[in-house]
Write a protein that binds this DNA or RNA. Structure first.
Lengths: 146, 146
DNA sequence: TATTGTTATACTCTATAACTATA
DNA sequence: TATAGTTATAGAGTATAACAATA
């Protein structure tokens, strides 16, 4: 807790606002829509499914949506041939959602679009970039787990 | 165009992904909804209106929606007493949307929520924070204007 | 004739509640 | 009875097209 009173916007706030503006100013939604005809939530789900199949329940938690929304979303992806459902081997109530080959391809293209660094970043001096890399590593270790 | 083949994710990509995950992992939507009962787009609009009144057309461009969506969104904010419309002094086709006192208050509270730096950032060493601050300043100057 | 704002309409996304089937 | 998934339904948000008023 700060003991200094009336500190004007401090460094942490200024840095946070700049970070936030830089990242949110990089809007990839149009590019994703043009390339995949999918919204950000569906691309996010495809990318997560690239790590392995998930149950509907796990999907709902992962994408922060209610179970019915997960069902509907997976229905849409299934109708487009990007995922398919199989029974869960251990529990007949559950279903596993897998990527199809087309889904894996879409996930890969989506990730390529999302991970392409913006020009301002690639134009940074390599010293700045290296320092930024180090600081971000330390930042991640200080992150409280979700 | 890269002439090195099969370069594994380079520094810029790694930094970009880390930045993106850090910022988007900080989701303020629930806090905004709890405090203001407004979605992110409406809060964004209120904050922009804090700089002065805008026409519906300007609002549509600023929030990246179509003019009809701007009309409907402003209707909702007006019904809640957060904004009001006045005729434009120079052109009777246009209307100016202003914040009411309640709207100004909501904008201020929304901005406070959005600009609160996450704990991981405030817990950084002051050296790292200062360096990050400098680098972000240089990053902004390299940003191509929108 | 072009522009500003609006209305009508439809589609997507997601939430709540009720239902089915398995455990 | 508890859980996984689904269906039905409703609400928010935004898009397209058609319209009114003004320039």
């Amino acid at each position: 807790m700060s003991t200094r009173s009336a500190t004007p916007p401090d460094t942490a706030s200024r840095v946070w606002i700049a970070l936030h503006e830089f990242v949110t100013g990089q809007d990839r939604r149009r590019a994703l829509h043009a390339a995949l005809d999918l919204g950000p939530a569906k691309v996010e789900l495809l990318i997560k499914l690239a790590d392995g199949p998930m149950t509907l329940r796990e999907i709902a938690r992962a994408v922060e949506v209610d179970p019915p929304a997960a069902t509907v979303g997976v229905d849409k992806l299934e109708a487009r041939g990007l995922v398919h459902r199989t029974p869960h081997p251990d529990d007949n109530r559950r279903k596993l959602v897998h990527l199809t080959d087309a889904g894996r391809d879409a996930a890969q293209r989506g990730q390529a679009i999302l991970s392409e660094p913006p020009p301002a970043l690639t134009n940074l001096d390599s010293d700045d970039l290296a320092r930024l890399d180090e600081i971000l590593t330390r930042l991640q270790t200080k992150r409280r787990p979700i």
